[in-house]
Amino acid sequence: MTTPLLETHNLVKDYAIGGEIVHAVNNVSLSISRGEFVAIMGASGSGKSTFMNMIGCLDIPTSGTLLLDGIDTKTLDSDALAEIRNRKIGFVFQQFNLLARTSALDNVAVPLIYAGIGYAERRRRAQDRLEAMGLANRLQNTPAKLSGGQQQRVAIARALVTDPLMLLADEPTGALDTQTSLDIMGIFQKLNDDGITVVLVTHEPDIAEYAARRIVFRDGQVIEDAAVKSRRRASAA
């Protein structure tokens, strides 16, 4: 068996709130292989975001082990973690998190700055990604001049620009209307078909049905982890 892309053993994240300890993520052990499409569900406050932030190397576990591509992240310093975020992971956020007053092209090129890619090459790659997202005529627009769906597509282009192994999306459709949400899910499915591992958090059962595997959290623990029956296919745009 090949090493899973991601593996957690007894992963724990505690928060101390007013002298009391909250186990936001409590003893989670699971593994995700290359090419999977995982939807994480659960009630508000069940620990979905906390889990995502840890597997995205944005947050450090209180205890437990996280293996990414076989590497124990405990052994990595902040520079090495930054490099993993840059090369292996693409983030898509609920609120898009684009830089204001910065063109779509420049927004998409940001990760390439930190990958040490030169100016011309950055622009070329960013443009390719935006064109693949159907935004060829929006390269110079700033986020304020784009619709929510367009902004999220710019954000996806940005997440993909360094050719990561895994996309992490925490409620990527949370700020979008139904039709736009379906478009975005179509994009994720197509990317997954092309081989990228996708992990997304969602509140909506319909959206979760586009994934191949569903993990449900409650009070920081996994209470359900199974393949999605009757998976939906988006008619790719």
């Binding site: 944005l58 520079d79 930054a82 975020r85 090369r87 998190n97 830089l99 700055i113």
Partner: peptide, 16 residues
Amino acid sequence: TREIGLRMALGAKRSD
């Protein structure tokens, strides 16, 4: 601060 967090998520090192 939020922009700093975003840049770090996108791969900025502390030195960057």
